[in-house]
Design a protein around this nucleic acid. Structure first.
Lengths: 325, 325
DNA sequence: GTGAAAGCGCTAACAA
DNA sequence: TTGTTAGCGCTTTCAC
């Protein structure tokens, strides 16, 4: 049986409440505090989280909700959050909704119930749904901006504009964009960034994708070829790599025949050949900031939502080249 | 304030314990049960997990411990476990030890404390340490076999033997093996499988790697070249892809100059060119089985540890070819 | 500065 | 079949 406060109290010759105070930063004399600490560590005492949780607030859990844990973009955020959480008293509850909005809603509520706070990553729900299903005082949104909520995100529009400008500078006149999930905020902001292409007099073609995955990319590649675009931007790197491989399989050379730009800069983007030109999101930093912001938010009782927008930066590698004349 | 059993009881006109029984599968009359259920759903009642946990056993949490969440091999297992857990009453606590044995030990203990059971994936600790830090009655080990504990794993030795045989059939006489983490059970079992190569009269070279990652692979590639081996097997696909890219960068053609075999069959293995010949582990299935086995183990009070060994299968793709004469 | 007592929400004895 | 009672481990009044 695990030792309890009572055990520690007996061993230290004090009452349970004194133990609680000694361990929890209450007002205790130095001598008794030392005695309690000694007794606690002698017994190998660790507080029972359930009992703590029952009393009032804290469960000391934080929830992390992502659309797809197997998507490297989210995996890297999970890794970063997890590394930061580990250094605190919190434990991490993971929820992966598999890109299913209904499931996302359920999981958001479930996590909310069991956790002090939750970090919701790229929620696919609409703004209204997010607001309805997430308490602004206890949740931090990552990779999306919603009024009145704490958010950490990169700026997708600016990233896209950098990509468009890069392609324009290379002489491309006709580009295609392979779209991401409809409910995705980044998706909407990226499409926004495409307006620059129109302003620059480029022709822009929108191509649907089923899911933001490698397989979807291989499908999209054929649509890209049909479009006669000389350059493609994809919603994310996974799609881009799918496109890349299918294009090469059809004998189309990247970047000489078609230029290709991804989004996110996942590890894989620099592991493929040609290496992928991509719009890098500071995933590590987003995870870290979210993990720091959440406790601050909880501390303040959710009083002041903060919004942090980080820059996205185009990383030019081997998949983009001058357009053919 | 969230509704409690008392609220539901009042609304249904019964006592709290009746509510508890009605909701928890106790003996209740049909009529009162219906009344309680109606009251509960009218109030939007959900049980307080902390209170339940406090009473006795269940926290309804299960813990999942992996060495590195960003390693696609583990990510896919996490995804599979997560999908299965979602359908149960359990919630998933994630711990990633970043390949650090001390951290792994701590996290194993922490998860044990907060969870009904834990799934420990490829623990890097020694057998003795695992036994010391994990309760056999509440933990399932994945990707490793330990006496007296519940385990789900693929057979690394047989996989390696298939790879060796494949290379032998292609006429390779001198092969290199790029090693994985020293504490890894799979690593030890894979080295075991290499004995077959010696029996077949092949020369075998062992090459150290720092971590089982892409970067380590690029380092290892140069050592491979130094070794004069005509074929390489790597501890995992990540290493293999690192090796692949570095070899190509040095003007060495895979598979014509050097054949290359990975391990795990992560998604990336079929996204690179040439596609990677690799020893596939049934990751999805391992996660699923572990997620099914754990509740069964807990149910039985940890009475009967089960051990499940799944076959690993060599998937021949484009990175292996006939040895040059 | 410290102890005694109450109670968080729930379930498991024990009565009825 | 149902209600009453007690208690899980902890913190937090309230006395002292």
């Amino acid at each position: 049986m695990r030792p309890t406060v009572t055990d520690v109290a007996r061993k230290a010759g004090v009452s349970p409440s004194t133990v609680s105070r000694a361990l929890g930063g209450g007002i205790v004399s130095e001598t008794t505090k030392a005695a309690v600490l000694a007794a606690a560590s002698a017994l190998g005492y660790t507080p029972n989280r359930a009992a703590r949780a029952l009393i009032g607030g804290r469960t000391d859990n934080i929830g992390l909700l992502v659309p797809d844990i197997a998507n490297p973009f989210f995996t890297e955020i999970v890794k970063s959050v997890s590394a930061h959480v580990r250094r605190s008293e919190y434990q991490l509850l993971l929820g992966s909704s598999d890109e299913d909005t209904a499931r996302e809603r359920e999981m958001a509520q479930a996590l909310q119930r069991t956790c002090d706070g939750v970090i919701a990553c790229s929620p696919r729900m609409s703004d209204e749904e997010v607001c309805a299903n997430a308490d602004a005082r206890t949740t931090v949104i990552v990779n999306r901006l919603i009024d009145g909520m704490s958010c950490v995100t990169a700026d997708p529009t600016s990233g896209m504009e950098q990509a468009v400008q890069h392609l324009a500078a290379l002489g491309h006149k006709h580009i295609a964009y392979v779209k991401g999930p409809a409910g995705s905020w980044s998706e909407q902001r990226r499409v926004e960034g495409l307006k620059l292409a129109q302003q620059l007099g480029m022709e822009v073609e929108l191509i649907q994708s089923v899911t933001p995955t490698y397989n979807s990319g291989t499908l999209a590649a054929d649509l890209v070829l049909m479009s006669k675009a000389s350059a493609v931007i994809a919603f994310n790197d996974l799609l881009a790599i799918g496109i890349l491989n299918r294009l090469e399989a059809r004998g189309v050379d990247v970047p000489n025949d078609i230029s290709l730009i991804g989004n996110d800069d996942i590890d894989m983007a620099s592991m493929c050949r040609p290496q992928l030109t991509t719009i890098a999101s500071p995933k590590e930093q987003m995870g870290a900031l979210a993990a720091e912001l959440l406790p601050r938010l909880l501390q303040s009782g959710g009083a002041e939502p903060e919004q942090i927008v980080l820059p996205a930066t185009l990383v030019v590698r081997g998949s983009t080249a001058v357009a053919r004349v």
